[in-house]
Amino acid sequence: MQAFQNIDLASFLDTLLSLSTAFFLGGAIGLERQYRQRTAGLRTNVLVAVGAAIFVDIAYRLAGADGATRVISYVVSGIGFLGAGVIMREDGNVRGLNTAATIWCSAAVGACAGSDLIIEAVLGTAFVLAANTLLRPIVNRINRQPLDTEAVEVTNTVHVISPKSWQRQAMQLLEAELEKSRYPTRDLDAHAFGDDAVEIEAVLTVTGVDGEELDALVARLAASPYVTQAFWSPSTTE
């Protein structure tokens, strides 16, 4: 019978508003992540926001503002475990930090919605989307600035394998593709690869690279008749 006594139309409508806000705002954040094909996309960000809103809303109804405050602190620490699951380290490159931070922000938006701070939830969503979209060109521009390679923690190298007879054409193609993608190089070296092939290596002098963009670049190189194989690899100076 306690379940029937807990039914209250006003509280139900309040919870519905909180969860709907978390759903749509988490969806707005997740849609941008899904468009960029990140590990945590639309559904993950919606679930994180709605889950945070549910926990905070329950605590607010059962224990008031003090209970909601305690649950929010648990959400902040607990969401770190979920964020850690999308962070990967591959050959010196750490990937997924931005996705993990976005999940953390989705939880914050959901906590605002669960606390009936609707305007704050909308404002938070706007800032998260701005960070993931408006700041991207600035970050890319900074990362494309050449630095002293010895001072950079991770050095990325593009490798192209070509028949000796097509070495000049393959090198020109590699230079053209890197220039088109605005990736300056420190060294462009060629050495023998077997009896009748050469390996051309281009060391990039940038502070960071877009892995998906480099994957597309080497795919274009590999499709050329002058190239038998193309790939890229990161290495650390440590």
Rank of each mutant, 00 (worst) to 15 (best):
R220W: 00
Y226T: 05
L16M: 06
I142W: 14
T185L: 15
S224E: 01
V158R: 07
I161F: 01
F193E: 08
T15Q: 01
G96F: 07
Q172E: 15
W166Q: 07
I119C: 07
A52V: 08
L42H: 00
L204H: 09
A10F: 04
E199D: 05
G124D: 04
S11Q: 02
R33M: 07
E177Q: 13
L25R: 06
E177I: 04
R43F: 05
E175W: 11
D187T: 09
E201F: 15
L135T: 15
V160H: 03
R182H: 08
D210L: 13
R141Y: 13
Q172N: 14
E177T: 07
L129Y: 09
T39G: 08
A197P: 10
R141M: 12
G78R: 02
I200P: 06
A65H: 11
A170S: 07
G96H: 11
E199Q: 09
A108K: 01
T155E: 07
Q2R: 11
T99C: 04
V218D: 06
D8Y: 01
A65T: 14
V139E: 15
L117K: 13
I103V: 11
R186Y: 05
V46W: 13
A202E: 07
T39K: 13
R43D: 06
R182V: 07
A101S: 12
A202Q: 07
A170W: 08
A40D: 02
S165G: 02
Y60K: 13
N156M: 07
I200E: 11
A222E: 08
N140S: 12
A202R: 10
T15M: 04
A151S: 14
I29H: 05
W166S: 06
V218F: 05
G41E: 02
G83R: 00
F24S: 11
L147H: 12
L97P: 03
R70A: 09
V128D: 08
T205P: 11
R136N: 10
A113R: 07
E179I: 02
L217V: 10
A223H: 10
E201K: 15
L16P: 01
F81H: 00
A40K: 00
E212T: 09
G124V: 04
R144A: 14
T155L: 09
A223I: 05
Q229L: 06
H159W: 13
Q167R: 12
L82I: 06
R89A: 12
L147A: 12
L13W: 08
D66T: 13
A121P: 11
A222G: 10
E90L: 04
T15R: 03
A130M: 14
D116W: 11
R220S: 02
I54A: 05
N143C: 15
T157P: 01
Q169N: 14
V160A: 04
V160T: 03
A176N: 15
I200A: 14
L82M: 05
V203R: 07
A3L: 06
Q37C: 06
S115G: 13
I79E: 13
E179V: 03
T44C: 03
Y74P: 02
F12Y: 02
T69H: 11
A219F: 12
R70E: 09
V158H: 10
L42V: 00
V152L: 14
L117V: 11
A3P: 01
